[in-house]
Design a protein around this nucleic acid. Structure first.
Length: 845
RNA sequence: GGGUGAUUAGCUCAGUUGGUUAGAGUGCUUGCUUGACGUGCAAGAGGUCAUAGGUUCGAGUCCUAUAUCACCCACCA
């Protein structure tokens, strides 16, 4: 027999291993089934999974388990991402603790360290997947640095290069002086910080006049090669063509007229530093200005900074301000708040920096995405739909993608140089004298190929043909730009198809008061701790059913507890059923002679199956959760099980079992462990594991509309009578007279716990107070010593009814309503009006 | 500057193409030592659906403004 209390640790023990050993997670075992495929968003091999991962992966597991049970050959392909800069930063930090520098170790040995790290963390992630109960097919596990992924990356790089979609050029890029690498725009996080406008004097050549220039980064002044004013700005027009003397450097630089200078902003005069600012770079192109780089890759000043050479960029700023002040060139320091780019990984201030890098030309690729989304049959369908707008918006206005990184951990760029010659290919050129590009690719370059490269592309493998395009991709909205958009354009370009038919987008996990979970706030919650305390099933059900699609979710321990209670409820319902089904076997199973309650619950079950299925198809899991929660707790436990207690026949037992089995199956994708535990104990079951049982289907032979409606009326009566008893504090020992159809009597009496029947109409009750309730189905009177019946309440009820009748009569008298509203709505109103009138008549009697 | 989402019960949230008297969990009140479960059962209280207009027979739902909060993109000399 089951324990009285649900013990999640006991329940979860050993089950994952059992499924794994039975091979239930493996795809491709029966290829007569239709294929269904999801690839996991590969977690970075940088650390532990957080609650966001738990949410994301559970959603996928729900879909894949559902599809598997529903007759599909379901592949959920797992894998991980090498995460170039993120991992490299961690490994560098670990080495630093050991007193070892990356460069002194050398490239090869450093990569060995990265592989060690990867193996260690990959194992950790796999064990967390196991704790989460994820049914991933480990036989197809992939890593972004696997041979095949590497081949895919090289193939793509070469083709794009040949077609001019990839080019190498000198541009202003975002430079991370800590990691000493270029970053893409998407890896830069803008933060609002306290800064200042430094107003400086730039004296005009051979004159006492000066231009007031305001800058937030005075240290870039050494790279100034002009100052710009707007040609239409009457204050400064006359100076265009003259020269100013660059402070501290005393170099003469021209004053140019350029639209970039906004007369309304600041002083209207801009210093132009083409090597350290993207806008200035453009101005420099227009006016053919020299590009002077003033910093080293590590953020220190280079020889162009004169006496400040070797200083850190911020130290230099302080020193030169002192000197400027001494020379009377500093007018004022105006404090401002402004947003400044920071590196996503190292959090240092990003330096716009002139550098030779590889770029993806986005023009054609983004246009292809926008075109494709217009085709209903070929587009990626977003759930919720609105996220398509985010994608389109991004595609309409995207800049070229800087893909080279000055790192070691990643896909090395398949380009070789010899003098001015460039060779791009899958293999190194065979002749002497070529050396390969030292840089690696942005980690997103390889993950963009994930949906097809993991299935064997560029080879036309069986898996690729069978499982591509994927059926669904699940990810958070924060990653649409980084990843989803890039998978779509690369897939369209290289396979000619969308990478996946559906894209399910979920929100972010927040803490109880709505803050983002972060290390610096220390408000993060480890899903493994939650699993230890409340069980995997509680966590899974909580994260997947407590918010609408695309909405954020607050982590609230109280809600996990409440989910645990729900599972405990299910557990005890199963306990009750199994207690009554000891020695029950296949021969005892019968659905002959169904009672009213039997028909009611079977009809309800049928409805629920339909609702659950349609919500599963739409990924509306919170609706599935609510449907199952109320069906199980209210309909099955509070009503049907209670009704079953007085009528424990073989038929009732069979119905109890039937409904429980289907409940378990529908819950299984959400709570795999507890459903498997209970399933294993059922006296009749179709499969060795609930995982491979069939998902419930609607059964037209189990539709009992009339009986269902009748039972609902009885239940309404029972609630109303209980209410009458409670509000009047009627004793449970009170005498009762009840008139109803014989077949309904036991239902009323059992549910109302009627003990003292008054079979004898002649008993004298004149010394007691009487309480009366009547409906079309039942007429019941309680005789009790106690307070007078609460007549005020009765009157209130009458008043409410009268108001409602009046409202409805008015509505039905309105021709506009009767003619324009749908017939069934009007019919319902008529029916309801009739019922209310009858009820009122009974009340007034 | 451009965009997205949110605003519904004390709290956290659902609310399908507009259609009964707006729901759930939790909290609250009252009563239950009922043979599955007190982690439970039963009954109940609690809402001007942010505000103002509009469309409609009918608006939490659609439209137009406004307010507040959160987020994304762009700019920021």
């Amino acid at each position: 027999m089951l324990d009285k209390k649900y013990d999640h640790q006991k329940v979860e023990m050993g089950k994952y291993k059992f499924w794994l050993e039975k091979g239930y997670f493996k795809s491709g075992q029966d290829k007569t089934k239709p294929a269904y495929c999801i690839v996991i968003p590969p977690p970075n091999v940088t650390g532990k999974l957080h609650l966001g991962h738990a949410w994301d992966t559970t959603l996928q597991d729900i879909i894949i388990r559902y599809k598997r049970m529903d007759g599909y050959d379901a592949l959920w392909l797992p894998g991980m991402d090498h995460a170039a800069i993120a991992t490299e930063a961690k490994v560098v930090a670990r080495l630093k603790q050991q007193g070892v520098g990356k460069r002194e170790l050398g490239r090869e040995k450093f990569l060995d360290e990265c592989w060690d790290w990867t193996r260690e963390y990959a194992e950790n992630i796999r064990s967390q997947w196991a704790k989460l109960g994820l049914s991933v097919d480990y036989t197809k596990e992939a890593f972004t640095l696997d041979d095949n992924l590497t081949l895919a990356v090289k193939t793509v790089f070469k083709k794009m290069y040949d077609e001019g979609l990839i080019y190498r050029g000198e541009r202003i890029i975002n430079w991370d002086p800590e990691a000493q690498t270029a970053l893409s725009n998407e890896e830069v996080i803008y933060k609002e910080i306290d800064g200042a406008f430094y107003h400086l004097k730039y004296f005009i050549e051979d004159s006492d006049e000066y231009l007031e220039v305001a800058t937030t980064r005075p240290e870039t002044l050494f790279g100034d090669t002009a100052v710009a004013v707007n040609p239409s700005d009457e204050r400064y027009q006359k100076y265009i063509g003259k020269k100013v003397i660059l402070p501290l450097v005393n170099k003469k630089i021209p004053i140019v007229g350029d639209e970039h200078a906004d007369p309304e902003f600041g002083t209207g005069v801009v210093k132009i530093t083409p090597a350290h600012d993207p806008n200035d770079f453009e101005v420099g192109l227009r006016h053919n200005l020299e590009r002077v780089i003033v910093m080293n890759p590590d953020g220190t000043m280079n020889e162009n900074a004169g006496k400040y050479v070797g200083m850190d960029r911020f130290e230099c700023r302080g020193e030169m301000l002192k000197d400027l002040e001494k020379q009377g060139l500093l007018i004022e320091i105006e404090p401002i708040k402004h947003s400044v780019g920071h590196s996503e990984r190292t959090d240092v201030m990003v330096e716009p920096y002139l550098s030779k890098q590889w770029f993806v030309n986005m023009e054609k690729l983004s246009r292809q995405v926008l075109e494709n989304q217009k085709d209903e049959d070929k587009k990626v369908n977003f759930f919720p739909e609105r996220f398509e707008k985010i994608l389109n918006h991004w595609m309409e206005d995207c800049h070229d993608w800087c893909i080279s990184r000055q790192l070691w951990w990643g896909h090395r760029i398949p380009a070789w140089y010899k003098g001015d010659e460039v060779y791009v290919g899958i293999e190194a050129p065979t002749e002497e004298g070529w050396h390969q590009d030292e840089d690696v690719l942005d980690t997103w370059f390889s993950s963009a190929l994930w949906p097809f490269a993991t299935l064997g592309w560029p080879n036309e493998t069986e898996d690729f043909k069978r499982y591509f395009p994927n059926d669904c991709l699940v990810t958070g909205y924060d990653i649409i730009f980084f990843w989803v958009s890039r998978m779509i354009f690369q897939s369209l370009e290289f396979t000619g198809k969308r990478p996946f038919k559906d894209c399910l987008i979920h929100g972010l996990i927040r803490d109880k008061i709505g803050r983002k979970m972060s290390k610096s706030l220390g408000n993060g919650v480890d899903p493994m701790d939650v699993i230890d305390t409340y069980g995997c099933d509680s966590l899974r059900f909580f994260v997947t059913t407590n918010s609408a699609p695309g909405q954020d979710l607050r982590y609230d321990e109280e809600k996990i507890k409440s989910t645990w209670n729900f599972i405990n409820k299910l557990w005890n319902a199963a306990r009750y059923v199994l207690m009554n089904l000891e020695d029950f076997s296949q021969e005892d199973y019968t659905l002959e002679n169904l009672t009213l309650p039997d028909k009611w619950i079977l009809d309800k079950l049928n409805t629920i199956i339909g609702n659950v299925r349609s919500n599963m198809e739409k990924y509306e899991f919170h609706n599935v959760g609510n449907e199952l929660y109320s069906f199980i707790w209210e309909d099955y436990c509070d009503w049907y099980i209670e009704l079953s207690k007085t009528n424990m026949t073989k038929t009732t037992k069979s119905v109890l079992l039937t409904v429980l089995t289907d409940i378990l199956k529908m819950l299984h994708p959400f709570m795999p462990y507890v459903t498997e535990e209970i399933y294993q104990m059922l006296p009749i079951k179709e499969a060795d594991s609930i995982m491979i049982s069939t998902y419930p289907k609607q059964d037209k032979t189990k539709v009992f509309k009339k009986e269902k409606e009748l039972v609902e009326k009885i239940l309404e009566d029972i609630v109303a009578i209980r209410n009458l008893k409670a509000t009047n504090h009627i004793s449970k020992h009170a005498d009762v007279k009840i008139e109803t159809k014989e077949e309904l009597k036991s239902i009323y009496c059992s549910q109302l716990k009627i003990q003292n029947f008054l079979a004898d109409d002649n008993q004298d009750n004149s010394d007691k107070l009487s309480y009366h309730y009547q409906s079309k189905l039942v007429d019941i009177t309680y005789y009790d010593e106690g307070e007078q019946e609460d007549l005020a309440k009765k009157e209130e009820e009458i008043k409410k009814l009268e108001q409602s009748i009046e409202r409805r009569e008015k509505l039905l008298a309105n021709e506009n309503y009767v003619n324009k509203a749908p017939q069934n709505v009007v019919e319902l109103d008529r029916k309801k009006l009739q019922e209310e009138k009858e009820k009122l008549a009974l009340l007034k009697k």
